[in-house]
Simulated assay, not measured.
Amino acid sequence: MLYNWLYPLHTEFSFLNVFRYQSFRIIYAAVTAFLIAFILAPWLIRKLQEIKLGQQIRNDGPKSHLAKSGTPTMGGLLILFAVVLSTLLWADITKPYVWLVLAAMVGFGAIGFADDYLKFIKRQSKGLSASQKFAAQVAIASAIAITLYFLPGYTTKLSVPFFKNFTPDLGWFYIVFAVLVIVGSSNAVNLTDGLDGLAIGPVMITALAYTIVAYVAGHRLMSDYLLIPHIENAGEIAVFTAAILGSSLGFLWFNTYPASVFMGDVGSLPLGAALGTVAVISKHELLLLLVGGVFVIEAVSVIFQVVSFKSRGKRIFLMAPIHHHFEMKGWEEPKVVVRLWIIAILLALLSLSTLKLR
Results as ranks from 00 to 15, higher is better:
residue 25 R to G: 14
residue 26 I to W: 01
residue 26 I to A: 00
residue 28 Y to C: 07
residue 28 Y to L: 13
residue 28 Y to I: 10
residue 29 A to K: 07
residue 29 A to P: 05
residue 31 V to A: 14
residue 32 T to H: 03
residue 33 A to E: 08
residue 33 A to T: 08
residue 34 F to D: 11
residue 34 F to R: 10
residue 35 L to K: 07
residue 35 L to H: 15
residue 35 L to S: 10
residue 36 I to P: 07
residue 37 A to I: 08
residue 37 A to K: 01
residue 37 A to N: 09
residue 38 F to V: 10
residue 39 I to C: 11
residue 39 I to R: 09
residue 39 I to W: 06
residue 40 L to P: 06
residue 40 L to A: 12
residue 40 L to M: 12
residue 41 A to W: 08
residue 42 P to G: 07
residue 42 P to D: 09
residue 42 P to W: 15
residue 43 W to P: 01
residue 44 L to T: 09
residue 44 L to D: 09
residue 45 I to H: 13
residue 45 I to D: 13
residue 46 R to E: 09
residue 46 R to G: 04
residue 47 K to S: 13
residue 47 K to E: 14
residue 47 K to G: 11
residue 48 L to A: 11
residue 49 Q to D: 08
residue 49 Q to T: 10
residue 50 E to D: 15
residue 50 E to Y: 15
residue 50 E to I: 11
residue 51 I to C: 15
residue 51 I to H: 14
residue 51 I to T: 11
residue 52 K to F: 04
residue 52 K to G: 03
residue 52 K to W: 03
residue 53 L to T: 05
residue 53 L to E: 01
residue 53 L to D: 03
residue 53 L to C: 15
residue 53 L to K: 05
residue 53 L to I: 04
residue 54 G to Q: 06
residue 54 G to C: 04
residue 55 Q to W: 11
residue 55 Q to H: 14
residue 55 Q to I: 02
residue 55 Q to C: 11
residue 55 Q to A: 12
residue 56 Q to S: 13
residue 56 Q to V: 14
residue 56 Q to W: 11
residue 57 I to T: 15
residue 58 R to V: 07
residue 59 N to G: 13
residue 59 N to I: 13
residue 60 D to V: 13
residue 60 D to K: 11
residue 60 D to S: 08
residue 61 G to M: 07
residue 61 G to Y: 00
residue 62 P to S: 02
residue 62 P to V: 11
residue 63 K to M: 05
residue 63 K to E: 14
residue 64 S to P: 06
residue 64 S to C: 08
residue 64 S to R: 06
residue 66 L to K: 12
residue 66 L to R: 10
residue 67 A to L: 03
residue 67 A to N: 06
residue 67 A to M: 10
residue 68 K to N: 02
residue 68 K to Y: 12
residue 68 K to P: 02
residue 69 S to H: 10
residue 69 S to C: 02
residue 69 S to F: 14
residue 70 G to K: 12
residue 71 T to Y: 07
residue 71 T to A: 10
residue 71 T to F: 01
residue 71 T to C: 01
residue 72 P to I: 00
residue 72 P to C: 02
residue 72 P to V: 04
residue 73 T to Y: 03
residue 74 M to H: 07
residue 75 G to W: 02
residue 75 G to D: 02
residue 75 G to N: 10
residue 76 G to E: 08
residue 77 L to F: 07
residue 78 L to R: 05
residue 78 L to C: 00
residue 79 I to C: 03
residue 80 L to A: 03
residue 80 L to Q: 07
residue 81 F to G: 12
residue 81 F to S: 13
residue 81 F to K: 05
residue 81 F to H: 00
residue 82 A to F: 02
residue 82 A to W: 00
residue 82 A to K: 02
residue 82 A to Y: 04
residue 83 V to G: 03
residue 83 V to M: 05
residue 83 V to I: 14
residue 83 V to F: 01
residue 84 V to C: 00
residue 84 V to R: 00
